[in-house]
Amino acid sequence: MNKNNAQDRKDGYFAGIDVGSTTTKMALLDFEKKIRVSSIIPTGPIIKKTVDKIINICFEKNLNGIDDIKYCVATGYGREIVDLADEQITEITCHAKGVNVIFPQAKTIIDIGGQDSKVISVDDNGSVLSFVMNDKCAAGTGRFLEVIARSLELSIDEMATLSRQSKKRVEVSSMCTVFAESEVISLVSQGVEVSDIAAAINRSIARRLVGLVQRIGLRLPLVMTGGVAQNKGVVKAIEDALNIDILISTEPQITGALGAAHIALKRFQERRDSIE
């Protein structure tokens, strides 16, 4: 690789790789800050393989070789394991940056990922002012949804659709995923409608997130990122609980990787400037 040559030529890419617990995301920017390619794949048990795989997928899409990556920022839980990376930056900072690119007016960010959820407060430049994360358990995360969906024998999408048909309010009070699962099973055995249970689960996640939002202090507009942002049931539950409208990009999962790629571009320029 020949990345550190400061070149005048405006070709080359800036990579952001976000290795999350459930999915791995990659975004490649060019000098014009345009997304050239992006990809999302499930994170496998061996992170190295997953990273290789996503790089290959990206470079199959009509780009020059991997050597054209000028700077790469890795983020997410697997950020230490990305050999290609010039720098590791946490997903908090990257999500903040990514959101700033898509919604420059955003003040608060909710990111619900596979194994953690976080609320980030940002300034006008997309710099992090403060952040809170959920406790180490899976309550209020994507994993929580997966576990419950599995016990209802539904896909997450099905659960989201069903939750919107809920007619009767029931409560799932457990924050603990395992206990919530057993609560759900006992609700099912009592003959409670699955749609009502699904809605209760969404409210349970919303409660958790609203708590985090209030700890930081709600500033509008609020943007939601991460895989769960595609789950309309959960989004609606949070909107209802906070009594606001939430902004969501078309591809909320890619936000972290996009932010990482933008930081990569910025770092490259800083470095080039300092050399010159």
Binding site: Y77, Q88, I89, T90, E91, I92, T93, D116, S127, V128, L129, S130, F131, M133, D135, K136
Partner: peptide
């Protein structure tokens, strides 16, 4: 002044999570 809370337990908290938090704090 920025502040951040880390809660610890005898059985330990995942170092990866602590790292993400502290690193984000320092980055911010």
């Amino acid at each position: 002044i920025p502040e951040y809370l880390i809660e610890t337990e005898h059985e330990g908290v995942s170092p990866a999570q602590v790292k993400t938090r502290l690193q984000s704090f320092i980055e911010s």
